[in-house]
Write a protein that binds this DNA or RNA. Sequence first.
RNA 1: GGGCCCGUAGUCGAGUGGUUAAGACGCCACCCUUACAAGGUGGAGAUCCCAGGUUCAAUUCCUGGCGGGCCCACCA
Length: 789
Amino acid sequence: MALPKRYSKEIEEKWQRVWEERGIHGFNKDSEKPTFVIDSPPPFTSGKLHMGHVLSYSYFDFVARFKRMKGFNVLYPQGWDAQGFPTEVKVEKKYGRLPKEEFRKKCIEFSNEMIKNMKKQMKAMGFSPDWRFEYVTTSPSYHKIIQLSVLEMYEKGLIYREKHPVLFCPYCSSAIAKAETEEKEEETTLYYIEFEYEDGQKKKPLIIATTRPELLHACVAVVVGKKYEKLDGKTAITPFGKRVKIFHDKDVKEEFGTGAVMVCTYGDKQDLVWQKRYKLDVVEGIDKRGKIKNSPFYDGFSIKEARKKVIKALEEKSKIIKKEKIKHTVKIHDRCKKEVELLPSMEWFAKVREHKEKIKEIAKKVKWVPSFTISHLFHWIDSLDWDWVISRDRVFGTPIPFYVCECGEVRAVEKEKLPFYPENAEKIVCKCGKEMKPEEKVFDVWIDSSVTPLIISGWKVDEELFSKTYPNSLRPQGVEIIRTWAFYTLYRCFFLTGEIPWKEILLNGNVLGVDGKKMSKSLGNVIDPDELLNNYSADAIRQWAAMSGVLAKDRPFSYEDINFAKQFLNKLWNASRFIEIALEGALEGEERISEVDVKELEEVDKWILIELEELIKDLEKRMESYDFRNYIVELQNFVWKKFCDFYIEYVKWRVYSGKKKREAQYTLYIVLSAITRALFPISPHISEEISSVVLKNQKTITELGWMSIEVGLTKEEKEKIKERVEMLNKIISEIRNYKARNQLSLKEELERVTIHSPIEISSVIEEIKNVGRVKEIELKSSNELRVEF
RNA sequence: GGGCCCGUAGUCGAGUGGUUAAGACGCCACCCUUACAAGGUGGAGAUCCCAGGUUCAAUUCCUGGCGGGCCCACCA
């Protein structure tokens, strides 16, 4: 068996099969080796990986493969975050409205389909999770652990149910968390509306400015700035005749609008502040589907319709003094992109506000890579002023394991009865005598994903595994979900176990379009992983990922990088083909080659081994600190610039002539062995192929392990050798330069060359003659290198 | 308004308190060399954003601008 002329996809598929058949990536529960546990992100089951996945999943696959080679027992699971709104939308589109239970079944079916394709893509990329540890957030066993985890938090007093204004998406008809909102700049109209106030017996006009006239019926006060300070305590009358109090308040911005504001429950967060400050009534002006309620005239109309009608009515009464176009920012729901409202609603909460400092403390115990990313978390924590709303009015989610009663009583489901599903819950009776209802809401999906370290470690399922694998070693994730995934995981896992979830967290940025902008369909700059997989080998794509490895920073996708990776692999492939020829017959027994003593080696052999030793030591440090970029760049430079450009050229004549051939073979063997193993974490398929075919290894590289190099020479000897061979390299460059200047072929033979060298270089004279194609060489000593032709 | 990251050839980007500031892509010229034209060799191309400061010495450290990106807050 010999290397084919070209590296191909078939080779990659072959090795993916071999790894799977031999169970190379399996975690061994009974092993005595140290464990390394990766809390890999479960992607949302959209059906397709995006470039961000390709990048970040490559990162931790590098780590997993490296750690296995270093003798760790690696637990690298793969999960799927299947529940959530986008799936509901798609399933509803396909099947229409269905009863809850059936609908949930269809959602599961649908997400399983999505998983199939994503799994296929992951395998094609050569990712190496242990598929026996696969988990899906839709499974009853997953639900059970999630419900159990919340019940334990409930017991610790961290969970409560309350009517409280929450961010609410009328389109999705569900409460959402602050972390699920985005901002959108919008043009809107600021209406100047005439109210009146009572000044003694007289009524005088008072102009307020608002963007939300449809909430006029929910107006519970007017607050005024300095300009109207003297109106404090007086009564205002809305155009529809409602009487409300006037307060003077420092939070009114004088320069905006008129300096007088109507407070509606709730138009925005400021209204909530004032409502609390002045203990105002709450008028629920909008219902959960975004329809007006509690209005004398407009109940049942949508916000937009109501706004039009109110404006029309006000205009008829000449109460609109002015209209002004302004730009302002509104909060929108990140999933549906629709405007979010603030509505009082009975929801479940997790206490985070009172534990802000504690969570920060926990976060500090984790090593953040790169370190500045912890500030993203701190900044987020500092800005939190509400607890985490953990309930959602959706179907495709983990049911909340509680019963609730009209009287306000709640009761936790018994742990033995988990997983809990409201549709087949048993009937129970409340203290008040009424029947309690099983809670119909489901959990926020971040409740599902914020305990992945516990899930993969077998929390409450396998105590032995848990003690071995928790805290996890590494959490890789994107910067943009620090405020959600990282934050919620730190919070939940700590309060459940008293320990940090993982020792290190590794942050990756986003992959932008080639144009440097966020990939989006509308910009047409989306790169599809499937398309890359059709045009490039997985090993080249993985190498692109490593080259893009500036951590926690967004980076445009680069065809230059991926093409360079492809060319590099081609270079290595061809070098290996040469070595295959060079080693013919030399690998009958590995011992024969390893017998060679360093002392017998030629100067150039020693040189490349010294360089290799330095490289390998460096690479270990690079990988330990997750510096993938410099890892691959250094490896590429060594292989291309030192090994191929010089060393291989230096030994060709020996290989062909037979002179000192064994030493050359030995050196080629060692170098190729070490570099295939060093390349393995990044580009595993090509490394396996070369290792197996050229180096005749029966074992896979994972089994062979990392290859350390120790050259048995003193520091001084090494320095001298490097000095002389670097001089040789310069001389060869000079000769090549001379030939290029004179438009000669590099093959052209030179009659005679005089070399003025500052150091003694007679030990490399054969290389100069054979590689430079020089018949006769005269050596002279000099202060500076000079080559005369 | 606050915080964080960043500014280095046409483009992308390493890196450094001290000789001549990597490398890649692109460009130009030459070479079909028995591993490789998906290659090789050589070359051109940089005010290291601007202004101050610290220092014997700043592209690097500090301050302030300017420009870009991300996150957060506010906007009745």
